[in-house]
């Protein structure tokens, strides 16, 4: 008969944490900010026309393409080849600003226009972010 020797040892293990039964995953900002990861993109607001809904120049916009825009949603559109962030008025085919100093933009026949996604969150950095400032 063969014996396989196994060394026995006793180590110091300490006391199990009383909280170990209550472990949960830490809070994730991704989970809070992004609902459809594969259909979401992130952009940077540039301009002052949306201040009335709390979007200031330089803010980060989370744009969800899975959702279908409803009346008065804040959206990102491709308007004549450029991304713009506005409030959509579907019934009157208009793009509204949230700043009285900016005009309403009517969507005309000849315009290139598609809704690119719904802005579901916007983020403001109250101190500068190193990541956003980084240039190569």
């Amino acid at each position: 008969m063969k014996f396989i020797p196994i060394t026995a040892s006793a180590g110091i293990t300490g006391f199990e944490s009383p909280a170990s039964d209550y472990l949960q995953l830490p809070l994730s900002l991704d989970a809070l900010l992004i609902e459809h990861p594969s259909a979401t993109f992130i952009g940077k607001a540039d301009g002052h026309s949306m201040q009335g809904v709390g979007i200031y120049s330089g803010d980060i916009l989370i744009v969800d393409r899975h959702l279908t825009a409803k009346n008065n949603d804040v959206i990102v559109a491709n308007y004549n080849g450029e991304f713009i962030c506005k409030i959509i008025n579907i019934t009157d085919r208009e793009l509204l600003s949230a700043n009285p100093r900016y005009k309403t933009i009517p969507i005309n026949e000849g315009d290139q226009f598609t809704i690119e996604g719904v802005v579901i969150r916007s983020i403001r950095c109250h101190r500068d972010s190193q990541l956003l400032a980084k240039t190569f």
Binding site: G43, H48, I60, V76, L132
Partner: peptide, 14 residues
Amino acid sequence: QYTTQWCDIPKIGC
């Protein structure tokens, strides 16, 4: 690199 570098994310006119 619009989707992988923070400094490259697309600008959205407001």
